[in-house]
Amino acid sequence: MNDAKKNKKLFEQTFISLLNKGCDIVLPVFGLSMFPFILPGDEVRVSPVNYDALQVGDVIVFENGGRLVAHRLLKIDVSKGWFISKGDGLMKVDGNNRLSDVYGLVVGQFRHQRAIKWSNTLFFKKSMAFLSPLVGYLNFYLGLVWHKYFRRS
């Protein structure tokens, strides 16, 4: 295993361990999967997950395909232990996932060291849970254009 993969695995293990100990963690965003609402360079505050408190529209951090991702919760069945999620800037849903793979809940977002409060309101989260599947194709291509021409240095 090369150094980059070792470092990534160590980061993920540390991240999960801190969440399991009840710590909140602030970390930078790297990908475009939540474009246009969470951008690369933004920071998110992640809290340990309380499965019973999860709501449709929340942005959750979970393991998907062996890597940690933060996507919007579209459907959840706590009694059966599954959920469906999707990145706002992706074309397709993640599919059925196990609740046991969820490690954290995004409770805050910061851009240029300023809190973005509207992104964590109940109205916004519910609206995005409804709109995300409808505008995913548009957001995906807009994200590619933004990344090529407008991204921050």
Rank of each mutant, 00 (worst) to 15 (best):
Ala4Gly: 03
Met128Val: 07
Asp42Asn: 11
Lys80Trp: 09
Gly108Ala: 15
Leu134Glu: 02
Val107Met: 00
Glu63Lys: 07
Thr14Gln: 13
Val102His: 14
Lys86Ser: 06
Asp3Tyr: 13
His147Phe: 12
His112Gly: 09
Ala53Cys: 10
Leu74Ile: 15
Asp94Arg: 00
Asn2Pro: 08
Val93Tyr: 01
His71Asp: 03
Ile25Trp: 04
Phe62Asn: 12
Ala129Trp: 00
Met34Asp: 13
Val107Ala: 02
Leu18Ile: 03
Glu63Phe: 08
Ala70Phe: 08
Lys6Glu: 13
Leu131Cys: 05
Ile76Met: 04
Phe11Cys: 05
Asp24Met: 04
Arg151Pro: 03
Asn120Pro: 04
Asp24His: 12
Leu54Asp: 10
Gly22Glu: 08
Asn7Lys: 12
Pro48Ala: 10
Lys126Val: 06
Val49Asp: 04
Val107Asp: 02
Asp42Trp: 10
Arg114Ala: 10
Val56Gln: 11
Ile116Met: 08
Met91Gly: 05
Val102Ser: 11
Met1Ile: 03
Lys5Ser: 14
Trp82Glu: 02
Asn2Tyr: 08
Asp94Phe: 03
His112Gln: 13
Ile16His: 02
Val145Tyr: 13
Ser119Phe: 14
Thr14Lys: 15
Ile84His: 05
Phe150Ile: 00
Met91Tyr: 07
Gln55Cys: 11
Pro28Ala: 04
Arg67Gly: 12
Gly31Leu: 12
Pro28Asn: 05
Asn64Gly: 10
Gly41Trp: 02
Ser33Pro: 04
Gly41Asp: 05
His147Pro: 02
Ile116Asp: 07
Gly104Met: 05
Phe140Ala: 00
Asp24Val: 05
Leu142Trp: 05
Ala4Ile: 14
Ser33Arg: 00
Met34Lys: 06
Ile38Asp: 07
Tyr103Phe: 14
Ser153Trp: 12
Leu74Phe: 14
Arg151Gln: 10
Asn50Cys: 14
Gly108Val: 06
Tyr141His: 15
Ile38Gly: 12
Phe110Lys: 12
Arg45Ile: 13
Asp42Val: 10
Cys23Lys: 15
Leu10Cys: 04
Met128Gly: 03
Trp146Cys: 03
Thr121Leu: 04
Asn50Tyr: 09
Ile76Leu: 13
Tyr51Ile: 13
Leu131Pro: 04
Ser153Met: 10
Val59Glu: 00
Asn20Asp: 11
Lys80Asp: 12
Gly143Thr: 00
Trp118Ser: 14
Val61Asn: 06
Ser79Ala: 15
Leu54Ala: 08
Ser47Trp: 03
Val44Ser: 07
Gly136Arg: 01
Asp42Tyr: 08
Lys125Pro: 05
Ile16Asn: 02
Asp42Gly: 08
Val26Trp: 07
Ala115Phe: 06
Phe124Met: 09
Leu138Pro: 01
Gly31Tyr: 10
Gln13Cys: 05
Leu122Gln: 14
Leu134Gly: 03
Val106Ser: 00
Pro28Arg: 01
Ser47Asn: 03
Asp88Arg: 00
Phe11Lys: 02
Glu43Ala: 05
Phe37Tyr: 15
Val29Leu: 01
Pro28Phe: 11
Ser79Ile: 09
Lys148Leu: 04
Val135Thr: 12
